Simulated scan of single mutants.
Amino acid sequence: MTAYDVGLLILRVVLGLTMAAHGYNKFFGKGGLKGTAGWFDSMGMKPGMFHARIAATTEMAAGLGLAVGLLTPIPAAGFVALMLVAAWTVHRPNGFFIVKEGWEYNLVLAVAAVAVATLGAGKLSLDYLLFSGTGLYDLLHGWWGLVIAAALGLAGGIGQLVIFYRPPAKQDA
């Protein structure tokens, strides 16, 4: 075990559990799934209940998958798709900085997840435990990890926006 592997473990666990907590909150936080569904409807992601379930489930699955380092580029792609949709639908009008509810945080989470997919989950991961020494392991990091995480994530996020996002009409002041 090296400091590199411990560093990747720390990064994966913090990123992953942070994302999983967001999913948990959508399911069980104040207002629960019904409140989350109403929020999705209000921002133009219809049907809201469908998107609330998809977002909460993806946040929990991607978060836990990244935390344990299982098929790492796939949960990283989930981060990219989730953060792209969140940045576009909620944070884009507010600019970049998080202090004004901008999309800075979304960018950092997505890029950090892609970086982990590129570097690989490290020796303290299920990827290493289950797949080291196999051809599949080579697809779970390096250029393949980067391409899978970024391309699949962008395709998922853009696809969801194109198919489902209908921005609410602007209210006259």
Rank of each mutant, 00 (worst) to 15 (best):
A3S: 15
V6S: 03
V6L: 15
G7E: 14
L8M: 12
L9I: 01
L9F: 09
L9R: 05
I10H: 06
L11I: 13
R12Q: 04
V13G: 00
V13C: 11
V14M: 12
L15K: 15
L17K: 03
L17G: 03
T18F: 12
T18K: 10
H22E: 04
Y24R: 08
N25E: 06
F27N: 06
F28W: 02
F28E: 12
F28N: 06
G29P: 00
L33V: 05
K34T: 12
K34Q: 05
T36Q: 01
A37H: 00
A37M: 12
G38P: 07
G38T: 01
G38W: 06
F40H: 09
F40P: 12
D41K: 04
D41S: 01
M43W: 09
M43G: 02
G44Q: 11
K46N: 05
G48N: 12
H51M: 15
H51R: 00
H51N: 05
A52C: 13
I54R: 03
A55I: 12
A56P: 04
A56E: 11
T58R: 13
E59D: 07
E59Y: 07
E59S: 11
M60C: 12
L64R: 13
L64C: 14
G65I: 00
G65N: 04
A67R: 08
A67E: 04
L71M: 05
P73W: 05
P75Q: 14
P75F: 04
A77P: 04
A77T: 14
A77L: 10
G78S: 09
F79Y: 01
V80K: 03
V80C: 10
A81T: 07
A81K: 00
M83E: 02
M83A: 09
M83G: 06
M83K: 01
L84M: 08
A87Y: 13
W88Q: 13
W88A: 09
T89L: 10
H91Y: 11
H91I: 14
R92V: 08
G95E: 04
I98G: 15
I98H: 10
K100M: 03
K100V: 14
E101N: 08
E101T: 07
W103V: 05
V108L: 14
L109R: 11
L109S: 06
A110V: 03
V111K: 04
A112T: 09
A115L: 15
G120P: 04
G120D: 07
G122H: 12
G122S: 13
G122I: 06
L124E: 10
S125F: 06
L126P: 15
D127I: 13
L129V: 10
L130A: 14
G133P: 05
T134P: 00
T134H: 06
L136M: 06
Y137G: 14
Y137P: 06
L140Q: 01
L140W: 08
H141C: 03
G142L: 00
G142V: 02
W143P: 13
W143L: 11
W143Q: 13
L146P: 11
I148M: 08
A151N: 09
G153W: 07
L154S: 10
L154R: 02
G156M: 00
I158S: 04
G159F: 08
G159Q: 07
Q160F: 01
L161V: 08
L161M: 14
L161Y: 09
V162H: 08
V162F: 02
Y165G: 10
R166Y: 11
R166L: 14
P168W: 03
Q171P: 11
D172P: 05
D172T: 05
A173N: 08
